[in-house]
Amino acid sequence: MKTDLNQDAITKQAANFVARLYSGELSAEEENEIYAWCDQSPQHQQEFDNMLAIWDSSNQLFQTAAPVKKKKHTYWYTGIAASFVCAVLAIWFVALPPSVSTQQVAHNEPNRYHTAVGEISTVGLPDGSIVTLNTNSAIKVDFSGSQRRILLERGEAFFDVAKDATRVFSINTGEKTIRVIGTKFNVRKSDATLKVSVAEGLVAVQSSTLPSSDQIDFEEAETLLPAGSIGAFNGTSEVIAQVTSKEVNASQQWRQGIFRFDNEPLAKVLTEFNRYRLKKITLENQALGKLKISGVFKLKDGDSILSALEAALPVEVERYPEYIELTAKN
Results as ranks from 00 to 15, higher is better:
57 S>T: 06
120 I>Y: 08
103 Q>R: 15
135 T>V: 02
94 V>K: 11
143 F>Y: 15
164 D>E: 12
58 S>D: 01
57 S>V: 05
61 L>Q: 13
59 N>W: 06
170 S>P: 03
82 A>F: 01
68 V>A: 10
66 A>M: 00
127 D>T: 05
75 Y>M: 00
127 D>G: 06
58 S>V: 09
81 A>G: 11
124 G>Q: 04
112 R>L: 06
88 V>M: 13
115 T>Y: 13
134 N>K: 12
172 N>E: 04
65 A>F: 10
120 I>L: 07
165 A>L: 09
131 V>G: 08
129 S>H: 02
84 F>G: 13
163 K>Q: 09
85 V>W: 03
103 Q>F: 12
122 T>G: 08
74 T>D: 11
163 K>S: 09
94 V>Y: 09
104 Q>K: 14
147 Q>E: 07
87 A>D: 05
82 A>W: 02
61 L>E: 12
122 T>C: 06
152 L>F: 06
136 N>T: 00
120 I>K: 11
114 H>Y: 15
119 E>C: 04
100 V>P: 00
151 L>R: 13
88 V>K: 15
79 G>L: 08
103 Q>H: 14
109 E>R: 14
128 G>C: 06
58 S>K: 14
114 H>V: 00
158 F>I: 08
135 T>N: 01
130 I>L: 10
57 S>L: 13
86 C>Q: 14
150 I>P: 00
140 K>P: 00
64 T>Q: 14
114 H>P: 00
76 W>N: 10
136 N>S: 09
126 P>D: 08
95 A>W: 06
90 A>S: 07
106 A>K: 10
138 A>N: 02
104 Q>C: 03
143 F>E: 12
111 N>G: 02
106 A>E: 04
123 V>G: 04
105 V>F: 10
121 S>T: 07
137 S>F: 13
170 S>M: 09
63 Q>W: 03
62 F>R: 15
70 K>N: 14
92 W>M: 10
85 V>S: 12
91 I>G: 05
171 I>M: 03
150 I>Q: 03
83 S>E: 15
147 Q>A: 14
150 I>W: 01
140 K>S: 11
107 H>V: 02
85 V>Q: 13
118 G>T: 02
157 A>G: 01
166 T>F: 01
150 I>M: 07
133 L>M: 04
125 L>C: 12
118 G>I: 00
88 V>D: 11
59 N>V: 00
87 A>I: 03
109 E>Y: 11
98 P>G: 09
102 T>M: 10
110 P>K: 14
68 V>F: 02
144 S>G: 07
67 P>T: 06
137 S>G: 07
120 I>E: 00
72 K>Q: 11
165 A>K: 14
161 V>I: 15
